[in-house]
């Protein structure tokens, strides 16, 4: 006769017996890709970057974002973008990219006297 003995755990289960997946090694191909999450709040007009998370695909990324980033009614709309598709400027280039604008204050429209007739500016 084949007798199967199973041990059930209750309460705070030792980590090696949780039955969950083995920890994902993000350095390998097996790991879930990273996604950037953008949330539009009730009052906001635009989606704002709120953070990132791991998910196997876009559908799961949206659901994870719902669970992780909208638990406290933060938003009414979610965008997710796989992080690898975000191209960023190189911080090392910051000097040549941004500093030249520093002494060109005439680019700010603060030197004009507005006629009284112009409203809503």
């Amino acid at each position: 006769m084949h007798i199967q003995i199973r041990k059930f755990y209750y309460g705070d289960i030792p980590e090696e017996n949780t039955g969950g997946a083995t920890p994902i090694n993000h350095s390998t191909e097996q790991g879930w890709p990273l996604w950037e999450v953008f949330i539009r709040s009730k009052q906001g007009l635009d989606h704002k970057h709120v953070g990132s998370l791991h998910a196997a695909d876009a559908a799961m990324a949206i659901e994870n974002a719902r669970d992780v980033y909208t638990r406290r009614q933060e938003g009414v709309s979610i965008w997710v973008v796989e992080s690898k598709f975000v191209h960023a400027s190189d911080p090392a280039d910051a000097e040549s990219l941004y500093e030249p604008a520093a002494d060109k204050i005439y680019r700010h429209p603060t030197f004009y006297d507005l006629p009284d007739a112009v409203k809503h500016m």
């Binding site: 980590e15 969950g20 994870n64 669970d67």
Partner: peptide, 9 residues
């Protein structure tokens, strides 16, 4: 104890 942080939540 979830398999991944997001699913734990």
């Amino acid at each position: 104890h979830g398999p991944i942080l997001e699913q734990d939540i």
